[in-house]
Design a protein around this nucleic acid. Sequence first.
DNA 1: CTGTTAGCGCGTTCAT
DNA 2: ATGAACGCGCTAACAG
Lengths: 331, 331
Amino acid sequence: MANIYDVAKAAGVSPATVSRVLNGARVTPDREARVRAACAELGFKPNRVARGLRRQSSDVLGLIIADIENPFFTALARGVEDVARTAALSVVLCNADDDPEKEAAYLDVALAEHMAGVIISPASMTETDVTQLIGKGIPVVAIDHSPESAQVDTVASDDERGAYAATSHLIDEGYRRIACITGPRESWAAVQRLRGFLRAHRESDPPRRRPAVKYADFRVRGGYRAMAELLDSANPPDAVMVTNNLMAAGALEAMYDRELRPPAIGVAAFGDAFWSHLVRPSLSSVHQPAYDIGRSAAELVLKRRGNPDLDPQTVVLPTRLEIRDSSRRPS
Amino acid sequence: MANIYDVAKAAGVSPATVSRVLNGARVTPDREARVRAACAELGFKPNRVARGLRRQSSDVLGLIIADIENPFFTALARGVEDVARTAALSVVLCNADDDPEKEAAYLDVALAEHMAGVIISPASMTETDVTQLIGKGIPVVAIDHSPESAQVDTVASDDERGAYAATSHLIDEGYRRIACITGPRESWAAVQRLRGFLRAHRESDPPRRRPAVKYADFRVRGGYRAMAELLDSANPPDAVMVTNNLMAAGALEAMYDRELRPPAIGVAAFGDAFWSHLVRPSLSSVHQPAYDIGRSAAELVLKRRGNPDLDPQTVVLPTRLEIRDSSRRPS
DNA sequence: CTGTTAGCGCGTTCAT
DNA sequence: ATGAACGCGCTAACAG
């Protein structure tokens, strides 16, 4: 492939002038035309690696997510992309798979490639280390919660309140033994949603104590297993609050396998699922603005790219309880 | 961040020796130990951009997909990742969003970064241009079908037969006016599945003619609209074969909105959905080995990386009809 | 406004 | 087995 010297020669100018044309610096119209003609002639495309080496920056935005099969993250990715495009940034997705090791590998890539910014849903509060990125001036935005290694811009949904609302709703419907199936202990989101669940119990009238809690993995299989254990236990729940939509699918499956269906056992889930009103009965859930979270995160990257040492800020987006049939107790 | 000269100085050797240690060339054990110590001491990580510039290659594998919200592609991505990891390659996902322009932008990135390989689900048979990648010796593997611009390794599922099987099954169940909701005309997969649908009609006994065909966009909303139009038409179908799972969700929704439910109107879909046995009645579908398609594609990249000018090969993986309740006509 | 020059950090000759 | 020197392709600094 042609390089910048070939173009310079063909256009009868210096390489610096070609570079200026490429980067929009001021050049005489005449020379500019000759350069552009030569570029087209030779099919020249600037080499991004060389440019990156020289400029110590690139125009790709890294998005490191915990689970590519989780619709929350894919919706979020669309939000990121739509904003990134307005700034001519490409977005590359990296699937860390909830594995701090894989995550570290991708953080290395981001660092080494001097990415324009990194949006990350930390696999772990404690292990995720973004200090090197920060040190290099690469904007980092966290989803849900800033890792402990450094205070960074954060975008989250109001998980605690959402979970509180869903649980209170189950309580209001008259369910008495409400269990919670939540995500990994390392996940901030899982912890927040569990907190909302517990607060709803404490603040109910009369206060309720010691609801059953199962920790799972935010995936379909994990939700299935957790629900199966609950249902097969000595004192099974009469309702369940599941802290994400994939686990909710698994939980429903476990119920179906035992010929149980909501709302005999009440079910409310956290997060959106396009199939929530296809199942019968339809699934009550807490809407979570995944797309907007992505947009906000990308906007924060862009903002910080302009002025590097702004104070880290946190954006919290509201959730909304959507009551459908799986949580309406028949009277 | 420390560079190779800093390490060399700290270890009392030349930068070349450091480079050799990093790349596994033969070095005296004594010197090697000093270099490794210095690396650890300084927290040195080789700069991938500089390395890429010099080596004209990188260790990231690009995966360019048509729609990140489509579970088929996310399952495929996991297959790619699992194989790539065995060769110490990182995988970055790029969402072309069915847009040839975005796709071209990502192909440019892949080219410029000298990616180790590119796996692409072409947005268009005609517009997708991979010749530059090929020219640079970058292995390219296509999903579903090779773009016209160059003959490359291809991995696909046996879509035509899968669609044939699903349609024949509907015919056998006694449905008489079976419609097809398929994807964009530019999509090879959509075309193949439609072909299988049509062949099943031709080869039925007696042969059937002129079944209704709707072209949509492989997304939930598109499936909804297509089904709504079919149902509201003068001569609505009594069954429908939907060529992917997202559109199937939309189609079911359109039916529910009209108080219609399978199997009064039979439904069979192409592709897997973890919610297929959560909906009532459960959804019959053609299993498509998305994960294995990803694995095969990644394996082809690795194979071609070894020996560049192998003849392009095509791998076709079988599909399998899974009959559930949405297509079993009540007698 | 333009051209010359140096260097981003590494891998790789070519000598030794 | 090792080190010195060069160049991958580009852009920033300087001089004109």
